[in-house]
């Protein structure tokens, strides 16, 4: 499978800390790739190295199968974590300018600006100054700016931070549309439900190292089906005492039972059925959130 991005053993050390440590990962073309990790894991540093904003101390980056060249960045769209817009400029002028900078001719840039403003429903704001826009609105402007030049690879650093649910869904839809058009998307986040919804593959980074990476489905399968989701009548205090149960988490509608490795789910089901009436019983993979906490916790321990 061709790769849109290959990262080989990149390193970055700041005076006090090693921000990125021998990090390697590959992003298949046409995938939505999640770069996960707790705060300060090195996600933004990694992305900045991909964008040639900071130089890696060592290691190699390949874009579209070729060794890194600045010109290849013309095919990349980048949404930085911080909102970088000229505050005094009008939204439309700002976007047209960024289109020019990205190599579009003026008429093309104007056309692309108008298209994306319409798609992201910010046309009404085109004559407003950036500083007059809300944070979420600025976020959408910036998102449009990332896509103006129709990049093949889109790198989004925390794209949903500060967005309301409606706009989050709108952005997710746009991302899925881009995937259908064959574009490759990489985004960093620590919101697991977004990853589960969007990503084909992930790389989980902690303390500058990749602790887990690959196809999301396979990763989850690797952790096995060790969780029972159940709903039942009456007192469920007995669950924790059953053999093979590691932990019980009660929530309003569901009870989650974590099994010890190698425990027999059918035996637990029988025990439960003997004591109460069960309306729901489901064997599931661990949620990504649990995997995240397990993987990060293991390294920290």
């Amino acid at each position: 499978m061709p790769y849109a991005l290959e990262v080989e053993k990149i390193n970055k050390t700041y005076s006090t800390s090693r921000a990125v440590n021998d990090l390697s990962f590959t992003v298949p073309q046409g995938a939505i790739y999640g770069l996960l990790g707790p705060n300060g894991a090195g996600k933004t540093t990694t992305i900045r190295m991909l964008m040639d904003i900071i130089m890696p101390d060592s290691g190699q980056v390949k874009l579209f199968g070729e060794p890194f060249r600045r010109e290849l960045l013309r095919r990349v769209g980048y949404l930085p974590e911080e909102r970088g817009l000229y505050r005094k400029m009008k939204v439309k002028d700002m976007l047209v300018f960024l289109g020019l900078i990205r190599g579009l001719e003026r008429p093309e840039s104007i056309r692309a600006t108008e298209q994306w403003m319409a798609r992201l429903e910010i046309t009404d704001w085109s004559q407003k100054k950036v500083e007059e826009c809300s944070k979420g609105m600025q976020q959408k402007v910036q998102f449009a700016a990332t896509l103006l030049h129709d990049p093949d690879l889109v790198i989004l650093d925390e794209p949903f931070a500060g967005l309301d649910p409606v706009n989050t869904v709108m952005l997710q839809e746009v991302m899925l549309e881009l995937e259908r058009k064959g574009k490759t998307l990489i985004f960093s986040t620590h919101r697991m439900e977004q990853v589960e919804r969007l990503c084909d593959s992930i790389c989980l980074v902690n303390r500058g190292r990749a602790v887990l990476q690959g196809n999301l489905r396979e990763i989850k399968r690797g952790f096995g089906t060790n969780t029972i989701l159940t709903r039942m009548e009456g007192n469920n205090g007995f669950l924790a005492t059953l053999p093979g149960v590691r932990d019980v988490i009660h929530s309003t509608n569901f009870t989650q039972i974590k099994m010890q490795p190698g425990a027999d789910s059918q035996a637990i089901l029988h025990e439960m059925a003997a004591r109460t009436s069960i309306s729901h019983f489901e064997l599931t993979e661990p949620s990504l959130e649990e995997i995240f906490i397990m993987a990060v916790g293991k390294v920290d321990a």
Partner: peptide, 16 residues
């Protein structure tokens, strides 16, 4: 300074 603190340069620097 404005370009630095508003991080505009980060958007520009990938192309400029």
């Amino acid at each position: 300074q404005e370009e630095k603190s508003s991080r505009v340069f980060e958007v520009l620097l990938s192309s400029v």
